[in-house]
Computed example of a mutant assay.
Amino acid sequence: MQNIDYDMKVKLIHGFSNKTRIQILESIKEKEKTVTQIVEELKGNQSNISQHLACLKGCGIIVGRNEGKYIYYSLRNQHIRDLLTMFDVVLEDVENDVARCDRHID
């Protein structure tokens, strides 16, 4: 049996546990984008979006590619894309329960 590092698992899941980070991930799910493009799409604050991008990159969920003066952000790989899709599938199945859950801790 494989030894599970729960702390590492929690750190990874934390990368997905913020509304803005999820919006960013959905924004770049199909196509890489610059910070400016993401900010415009989300109608967000550039500084805030950049902080969330740094978190996602630090967690290994996204990667950045330099081209000239721009950095293009994309999902790290197909596994991350699949995981985002799986979140949607699971949520569809348990949405009513999640909506009623009063034990969520921020």
Rank of each mutant, 00 (worst) to 15 (best):
residue 61 I to Y: 07
residue 3 N to F: 13
residue 106 D to A: 04
residue 68 G to A: 11
residue 55 C to G: 01
residue 9 K to R: 12
residue 98 V to W: 11
residue 7 D to R: 14
residue 97 D to W: 08
residue 87 F to K: 12
residue 84 L to W: 06
residue 63 V to E: 07
residue 61 I to L: 11
residue 89 V to R: 10
residue 57 K to F: 12
residue 29 K to W: 03
residue 3 N to W: 13
residue 47 S to T: 06
residue 77 N to Y: 12
residue 66 N to W: 06
residue 13 I to H: 13
residue 35 V to G: 06
residue 105 I to W: 12
residue 99 A to M: 12
residue 33 K to Y: 10
residue 71 I to R: 10
residue 20 T to M: 12
residue 88 D to S: 15
residue 76 R to C: 05
residue 57 K to M: 11
residue 59 C to I: 03
residue 93 D to A: 09
residue 15 G to P: 01
residue 42 L to D: 07
residue 4 I to M: 15
residue 55 C to Q: 10
residue 34 T to M: 11
residue 18 N to D: 14
residue 74 S to K: 02
residue 33 K to F: 11
residue 24 I to N: 08
residue 78 Q to I: 10
residue 85 T to S: 15
residue 61 I to N: 04
residue 36 T to P: 00
residue 18 N to E: 13
residue 91 L to F: 09
residue 6 Y to A: 15
residue 31 K to D: 05
residue 59 C to Q: 07
residue 81 R to G: 03
residue 10 V to Y: 13
residue 37 Q to R: 00
residue 85 T to P: 05
residue 58 G to R: 02
residue 54 A to V: 09
residue 30 E to V: 00
residue 98 V to R: 05
residue 93 D to K: 10
residue 87 F to T: 09
residue 97 D to F: 11
residue 70 Y to E: 15
residue 23 Q to K: 08
residue 63 V to W: 00
residue 25 L to Y: 06
residue 17 S to Y: 06
residue 99 A to W: 07
residue 104 H to I: 11
residue 3 N to Q: 14
residue 85 T to H: 13
residue 11 K to A: 14
residue 86 M to I: 12
residue 17 S to F: 05
residue 90 V to D: 11
residue 93 D to G: 01
residue 19 K to M: 12
residue 80 I to E: 03
residue 46 Q to T: 04
residue 84 L to M: 13
residue 10 V to S: 14
residue 80 I to H: 01
residue 94 V to A: 00
residue 21 R to L: 10
residue 44 G to W: 04
residue 44 G to L: 05
residue 60 G to I: 03
residue 21 R to N: 09
residue 100 R to C: 07
residue 34 T to L: 11
residue 27 S to T: 14
residue 28 I to V: 09
residue 104 H to M: 08
